[in-house]
Design a binder for these strands. Structure first.
Length: 480
RNA sequence: GCCCCGUUCGUCCAGCGGCCUAGGACGCCGGCCUUUCACGCCGGUAACACGGGUUCGAAUCCCGUACGGGGUACCA
């Protein structure tokens, strides 16, 4: 391998996901930490798809990884390379190991291995059974690595420090399957070497495989191995490693729900690491600057959706109205949004943007705050809101009648006039009836179907006089 | 079983031998603002797993125990 002199110290990292059909938040975090390290050190980020069996080298599987990475803004300088394209090199390495005596053939099945353990009284496992049997290669015959008997294999982990493994606890693992394909260990070793990887940054679940790679590395005469950094796992509320089945781990679902990539990346960066100054919400450029691998935690982190929501809400609030309107549009034009697409008006959404931005934490919550604006009339009232404002609220019918009367006079250009009219009714009735009458509540429910919403006067200006009067009348008729 | 890793508020993070009466953030609770809901602001709740060392001094270093997790495949 040749390395140009000026770049000798520039690190090369790699993100090496298996194509499983989607990108996992844990993988995304690994990708991010690799990326942070590379970007912070003028390094190179290599993307390598670990499709050892090649059956998953399809555009769909690859896109399922690349698209979320691009969305997050995690870019790469080389690749994607495909492990399946490099099978020849891997097999070559296996052959070299066989020739040099570091690896040998084995034709034992799982059952035979178990039987051997039983009959010899050894604990279950592979005890070098075929080491000296001189098995001939052929179909179904695997190649195993001859793990040295009494050696300490040391992993100098940037995150965890020195981790030692006694080689006798590692069994002679398979490096080439019975069908001739290389396994993860050998492929990884050869690829990391050939690609000049200087730092392997990945999840702690791979820590135990590292001594094997180190052993292979040495047997292959590769020289100094890469540096390793094993990140703490991301776990669920039960403190188990995030799993596809149990947990909500696909990046795509977060994308779809309306999390902003900036917020997602910011949140991911805070899992297993934190800036010393305690400032959590900050631009990625600053995180790149502050991030160091040695500061990464050693204990598992729970991926807390509440925290994510908080970050996302903060990022949404910070959006300029025009930008917010642009980003939220797909959510307001969705199929089950509840109003016809023709009703949608982008300029109104932009005008209301600040009102919506402060009320939602994910973009997909936007429609519920704007429904009243785009529907033809209120077809369903929120039950609790109706009960409170119309039934329990005092004098709802009179409020509606008098507000409608007052509104007829207005041109609806000025929200202040509308406010004065509605509040005037409330104050008048309060004086007349001798106890507080809230005029805003029934009006709001009549016009929007809900007791919670954006400032009423603004909403009414947008609705216009005719719509307001019609909705007031419709609600009023339900009160009889 | 064996191997490896870990353990600071419910959660995430800070703390790298004295600045700790342990700090920030999320959540939760209370208050202020407000004739809606929010936002914002103010305040509160709540943690160094346990036991031994080392040291003048330990959340910080060492050992052990407990608990949690990961790995233990012809998955990666």
């Amino acid at each position: 391998m040749t390395v140009s002199l000026g770049l000798v110290n520039a690190p090369r990292v790699r993100f090496a996901p298996a194509p499983t059909g989607y990108l996992h938040v844990g993988s995304a975090r690994s990708a991010l930490f690799n990326w942070l390290y590379a970007r912070g050190h003028g390094g190179t980020m290599v993307l390598r798809i670990e499709d050892t069996d090649a059956s998953r080298k399809t555009q769909a599987f690859v896109d399922a990884i690349l698209e979320p990475l691009r969305w997050l803004g995690i870019d790469w300088d080389e690749g994607p390379y495909f492990q399946s394209d490099r099978t020849e090199s891997h097999v070559c390495a296996v052959q070299r190991l066989v020739r040099s005596g570091w690896a040998y053939n084995c034709d034992l099945t799982r059952d035979e291995i178990i039987a051997l353990c039983r009959s010899s009284g050894l604990p279950e496992g592979y005890h070098g059974w075929s080491r000296d049997r001189d098995v001939q290669d052929g179909p179904g015959v695997v190649v195993r690595f001859r793990v040295p008997n009494d050696q300490q294999v040391v992993v100098n982990d940037i995150v965890r420090g020195r981790v030692e493994f006694a080689s006798h606890t590692i069994e002679d693992f398979v490096i080439r399957r019975g069908n001739g394909t290389p396994t993860f260990h050998i492929a990884n070793t050869v690829d990391d070497h050939d690609m000049g990887i200087t730092h392997v940054i990945r999840g702690e679940d791979l820590l135990n495989t590292t001594p094997r790679v180190l052993l292979l590395w040495r047997a292959l005469g590769y020289g100094d191995p890469p540096n390793y950094a094993h990140l703490p796992l991301l776990v669920n509320a039960q403190r188990k490693k995030l799993s596809k089945r149990r947990d909500d781990v696909a990046l795509g679902t977060y994308m779809a729900r309306g999390y902003l990539p900036e917020a997602m990346v910011n949140a991911l960066a805070l899992l297993g690491w934190g800036p010393r100054d305690g400032v959590e919400i900050r631009p990625i450029a600053e995180i790149v600057e502050l991030f160091t691998l040695a500061e990464v935690n050693r204990s598992p982190a729970f991926f807390d959706i509440d925290k994510l929501n908080h970050l996302n809400a903060a990022y949404i609030k910070a959006l300029r109205p025009a930008r917010f309107a642009e980003l939220v549009e797909p959510y307001l034009l969705g199929p089950d949004v509840g109003w016809p697409v023709e009703a949608y008006r982008a300029e109104v959404v932009e005008a209301l943007a600040p009102d919506i931005q402060q009320r939602i934490s994910v973009l997909s919550e936007a429609p519920q705050w704007l429904r009243w604006l785009f529907v033809d009339g209120i077809d369903s009232f929120d039950q609790r809101s109706w009960t409170k404002a119309m039934i329990k609220g005092r004098a709802a019918a009179r409020v509606i009648d008098e507000v409608a009367e007052a509104l007829r006079e207005l041109d609806f250009k000025n929200p202040d006039e509308i406010e004065a009219a509605v509040m005037g009714v409330g104050n008048r009735l309060t004086a007349e009836l001798g106890s507080r009458v809230m005029s805003q509540a029934p009006v709001r429910v009549a016009l929007t179907g809900h007791s919670a919403g954006i400032p009423l006067w603004r909403a009414m200006t947008l609705l216009g006089r005719d719509a307001c009067l019609a909705r007031l009348a419709a609600a009023r008729s339900r009160l009889l």
